[in-house]
């Protein structure tokens, strides 16, 4: 029964033959991937491989040149042509994005950072407030509701950013190197939160350099290099026993 459901229900996110270049530099060359509900997909690869650009295209921050992007079977981008602005706005409610540098709004309190967007979308204030408070509790930020971002550590700021994304109740959450800007001792608290979300079957795509995390949390790992997907599959298979030489080369750096 469950299997049958999987076959019929469309992937929450499908990307087909996505292409993107900056001037003469081709950053994404024919990328295709799909993410199923409740799955965690980790994308790894050297810097400049196009991982971040892929996420930014998926969240409409970059304008892809060609290909398809579908959310829940509906086209946001079809053959390089985007849906209307109003439609894109509707698609935006389906995903959330957590940035490397948090990008919290410095002039807003923690609570307002988390709750303003849903309120602007017309949701009930009290309801959003309750949801935001419970998300902050879940992120271990109880008592920080009235604090301003500059008063928080990097790890705390990133957890606020995750709460902010979650407060929009997205169907899929993108993480763009969520721990890269953090001091090493602070990465753990952020990864713990993501792991907790994975256990709750939150659909996530995580661009990361944290190999043990990718191995432990992901349903699938994608290795990208030079704008193409070199290898993907079960995290243990890709990370412990890669088929491709490029993957092995890349992973060797982390073994040291």
């Amino acid at each position: 029964m469950a299997d049958k459901m999987n076959e019929t229900a469309p992937s929450i996110l499908s990307i087909r033959s996505l292409q993107k270049s900056f001037g003469a530099l081709s950053v994404l060359k024919d990328i295709s991937l799909s993410v199923e509900r409740g799955n965690v997909v980790s994308i790894i690869g050297p810097s400049g491989s196009g991982k971040s650009t892929l996420l930014r295209c998926a969240s409409f921050l970059e304008h892809a040149d060609d290909g398809d992007i579908l959310y829940d079977g509906q086209y946001a981008l079809k053959g390089g042509v985007y849906a209307s602005r109003a439609e894109l706005n509707r698609f935006r409610t389906r995903f959330g994005l957590v940035f490397q540098n948090f990008q919290l709004f410095p002039h807003y309190s923690v609570l307002r950072n988390v709750s303003e967007a849903p309120i602007l979308h017309g949701e009930d204030k009290e309801e959003v407030r309750e949801r935001a408070l419970s998300l902050l509790r879940k992120m271990g930020l109880e008592g920080k509701e009235t604090a301003y971002p500059y008063q928080l550590s990097g790890g705390q700021q990133q957890r606020v950013a995750i709460a902010r994304a979650l407060c929009m109740r997205p169907e899929i959450l993108f993480f763009d190197e969520p721990t890269s800007a953090l001091d090493p001792e602070l990465t753990g608290e952020v990864l713990k939160v993501i792991r907790q979300l994975a256990e709750e079957k939150m659909t996530m795509v995580v661009v990361t350099h944290e190999m043990p995390f990718a191995k432990a949390v992901s349903n699938r790992v994608i290795f990208m290099a030079d704008g193409v997907i070199v290898e993907q599959g079960d995290p243990h298979a890709v990370l412990e026993n890669p088929r491709e030489e490029r993957t092995r080369q890349f992973l060797r750096v982390f073994e040291r």
């Binding site: 969240s59 409409f60 921050l61 706005n89 935006r92 409610t93 995903f95 959330g96 994005l97 940035f99 540098n101 990008q103 919290l104 709004f105 410095p106 002039h107 303003e116 967007a117 602007l120 979308h121 902010r164 994304a165 929009m168």
Partner: peptide, 29 residues
């Protein structure tokens, strides 16, 4: 920073909302 615009865009702020609520207050300071 451009990131402030992007964060607001992903959260579904309109252009006016982004400017009036996110950018302008920081500019004024």
């Amino acid at each position: 920073p451009v990131g402030q615009y992007e964060a607001a865009e992903v959260l579904g702020y309109t252009r006016t909302q982004t400017f009036m609520r996110i950018i302008l207050p920081q500019v004024i300071k």
